[in-house]
């Protein structure tokens, strides 16, 4: 991508924001567990995942910010609700149920790894370079969360039931990750997004492979293209609650330095 027209630039920004918003709200939601997770060691590890996700979001906001002439903080904290492009799964309330938190992270981490792998070959060299770096950290997340699913599925009958229910509970919401942001086709045309396989199929295969190890089967349906959701700025009440909390102090005085 040597030269960039206005439409492509907007599409590139939308792509960065859709990933960064997913990461920000996922980290935001998961940081809620810091201090109260079920095991101290799990608390510390989950907090690291939250920090990774927020740091990944920061890097992507920086990249988008260069094109938008705006700071990462103002992009992250200062937009109107319909300008956020995160999928619905990342803000879905986990009800402080550890199985829900693990199921959500399992779906999202595996999806993010696929996204970063794919974007490591982007014709936009800056995005490709960033994603090559993020793939390494994302793989650690995936290893960690895949292990958690296995542990809960093989722990006690109760934990197997709980994680199975949570994986099913979040299956519909997982579909929201596959909605594409506005201008996505243009990015495929210009090899900003290098599509060699259907990402839903690839994701489903990885998830199924992990779940087959512990005899869990979940049915997924990709309904993202049929509905306008988070990537189009159409959000749930859970998103509104998260955004209110995210902006609580920032909005006291957006011009102030904190």
């Amino acid at each position: 991508m040597s030269t960039i027209d206005e439409a492509t630039q907007q599409a590139v920004i939308n792509l960065c924001l859709s990933i960064a918003d997913d990461k920000l709200f996922l980290g935001h939601r998961n940081s809620n567990w810091t201090g109260i997770a079920p095991i101290l060691e799990a608390d510390i590890a989950f907090s690291s995942l939250a920090q990774d996700d927020i740091a990944h979001a920061s890097a992507l906001y920086e990249l988008a910010g260069n094109l938008m002439d705006e700071t990462a903080d103002n992009i992250a904290f200062g937009r109107k609700p319909d300008a956020y492009l995160c999928s619905n799964i990342v803000t879905k309330d986990d009800q402080f149920d550890w199985a829900n938190a693990i199921a959500r992270q399992f779906y999202c981490s595996n999806f993010d790894l696929l996204r970063f792998e794919r974007l490591s070959n982007s014709s936009w060299s800056e995005l490709a370079a960033l994603c090559k770096r993020l793939v390494v950290e994302q793989q650690i997340q995936v290893n960690h969360i895949n292990d958690w699913v296995k542990q809960l599925a093989t722990g006690t009958p109760e934990s197997k039931e709980r994680i199975t229910n949570a994986l099913n509970e979040y299956a519909d919401a997982a579909s929201s990750m596959f909605e594409t942001p506005y201008g996505f086709d243009l990015l495929i045309e210009q090899d900003v997004v290098n599509v060699t396989e259907d990402i839903f199929d690839a994701w489903q295969a990885r998830i199924a492979e992990q779940l087959s190890l512990v005899d869990i089967s979940v049915d997924f349906e990709n309904t993202a293209s049929e509905n306008e959701g988070g990537r189009s700025g159409v959000h749930s009440d859970d998103f509104a609650d998260s955004l209110t909390e995210l902006q609580a102090v920032y909005k006291e005085d957006p011009a102030a330095s904190w």
Binding site: H28, S47, Q51, A248
Partner: peptide, 17 residues
């Protein structure tokens, strides 16, 4: 969850961790 910018949010999460 209410930290006012990305840097503070990361730092506070790390501190509580």
């Amino acid at each position: 969850t209410r930290a006012p910018n990305l840097k503070r949010k990361l730092a506070l999460t790390a501190k509580v961790q």
